[in-house]
Computed example of a mutant assay.
Amino acid sequence: MRRSKLLRFGLVLSGLLAGAGAVAMAPAAQAADGAAQRNAAAANTNCVTGDLLVPSCGVLWGAAAGGFTTKPRDVELRSWENLSGRTATIFHTYHKGDEPFPTRSEIAMTRDAAKPRVLLLNWKIAYGSNWAKVAKGEKDARIDAFAARVKAYGQKFFLVLNHEPENDVVARRGSGWEAKDFAAMYRHTIERLRAKGVTNAVNVLAYMGNEKWMAQSWWKDLYPGDNVVDWIGLDSYVSAEKGYYHYGKFNDLLDRAPKGGGTGFYDWAERKNKPIMVAEWGAYHRIGYRADKAPVYNSVLPELAKRPAIKAIVYFDTKNDDEGNRDISINSTASSLSAFRKLAAAPIFNVKIG
C-alpha cells in the first residue's frame, strides 16, 4: 500500500476525518475507509459468537505457535500472545489417529477466565489407515472414543478433519486416497459424531487452495456436502521476499485461482454461503534473508473490509517450517513485529466467545 493511503487509513481510523464521508474518494481510499468503519463498528458493538461460533460482528483472531518444535503448544501460544499483544481467541492445535485429545493443557487454555479461547482441533483421522476405510466404518471405534471425550469436554470447538486434503490425494482408482474418498470420510465422520450425540463440534473444511490443486479435475470432488460443513477454511501463505515463490500481500493468498484460469478461492468459497476461516496464514521469507513482512501485515485490514465472508483468521507462527527453509515468525525483523502488533491491536478482533 502506498504511503498516502496508509496515512489516510490511519487518520480515518483515529476519527480525525469525521464527516468526510461526503467527499468522493478513489476506490483504494474507499477500501481504507471501509476498513476503518468496520474497525469502529467492532470497537463499539458487543461482538459475540453464535451457535456455530460465527461472530455477530468483527473477525475472530487466532494462532498456532511453536510449529515444528518439541515445545508445548500452550506454552508457545502464551509466549506468542505476549509478543503480539493480543490473546489468540482461537487456539489451533494438531492431532492424528488415536491420540487422546483435547488434552488437559488444551482444555485449560479454554477455561482461562482472564483470556477466553476456543479450540481449533485439527485431526488426521485416517492416520495409519486411509480415507476409504474410514468411510466404510473401519475406524468407528476411533470416532466413538473422540465423541465421548468431546461430549465430556462440553464446550464448543472448531474441528478440522484432515486439513489440506489436496496434498494427500492419490488420484488412482482404488488407492483409498481419492478425492471422493476424502468426501466420504468427512461425511461419515461428521454424521457418526452427530449420531453419538456430539453437538459442540463446529466443522471446518480446510483447503490448501493452491492453484496447482485447484486446476485438477478431482478438486471439486473433495467437497462433502453443505449439510456436513459449517465453515470453509483456507491454509495459505505469502512470501515477503520479492521474486520468491508466492510473493505478495494478504489478498494474494485469498485469490489464487486454477492454473489456466478460473474462479479464485475466496470467490469460490463465498458462493458456498458459509463463513470463511483463514485457518492458517502467514508471511514468510527464506531463512537468513530477513525480508520485511510489514507490507503483508499492513494489507490485512483493507482486505478484510472488502471480504465480509471472512469471519476468522489464524496465524501459523514458526521460525522454521516443514520444508526446512522458511521463517513464518512475526518477529523476524523489528519492523515486521511492529506492523504485526499494530494489526493485532485493531478493534475488529474484539470478539467475545458466546
Rank of each mutant, 00 (worst) to 15 (best):
G21V: 00
G21R: 09
A22D: 15
A22C: 09
V23G: 13
V23S: 13
A24G: 15
A24R: 15
P27L: 00
P27D: 00
P27T: 00
D33H: 07
D33N: 10
D33P: 00
A35S: 10
A35Y: 01
A36M: 04
A36D: 04
R38G: 08
N39K: 09
A40D: 14
A41W: 14
A42H: 12
N44P: 11
N44A: 14
N44E: 15
T45P: 14
V48T: 14
G50F: 04
D51M: 09
L52R: 15
V54Y: 08
V54C: 05
V54G: 06
P55W: 11
S56K: 12
S56Q: 10
C57N: 11
L60S: 13
W61V: 01
G62C: 04
A63F: 10
A63L: 09
A64C: 09
G67M: 13
T69E: 09
T69F: 05
K71Q: 08
R73Y: 05
E76Q: 13
L77G: 04
R78N: 08
S79N: 10
W80S: 03
W80C: 01
E81M: 01
S84G: 15
R86H: 02
R86M: 02
R86W: 01
T87E: 12
T87R: 12
T87K: 11
A88T: 02
T89L: 10
I90D: 09
F91R: 06
F91E: 08
H92V: 05
H92M: 08
H95V: 01
K96E: 14
G97E: 09
D98Y: 05
P100N: 08
F101R: 01
P102L: 00
T103P: 07
R104K: 11
S105V: 11
S105G: 09
E106W: 08
I107Q: 14
I107F: 02
A108Y: 09
A108W: 08
M109F: 02
T110F: 02
T110H: 03
R111I: 00
R111Y: 05
R111T: 05
R111S: 06
D112M: 05
A113I: 04
A114Y: 06
A114P: 07
K115R: 15
R117I: 01
V118P: 05
L119M: 03
L120F: 02
L120T: 00
L121M: 14
N122G: 06
W123L: 06
A126V: 01
Y127Q: 11
G128E: 10
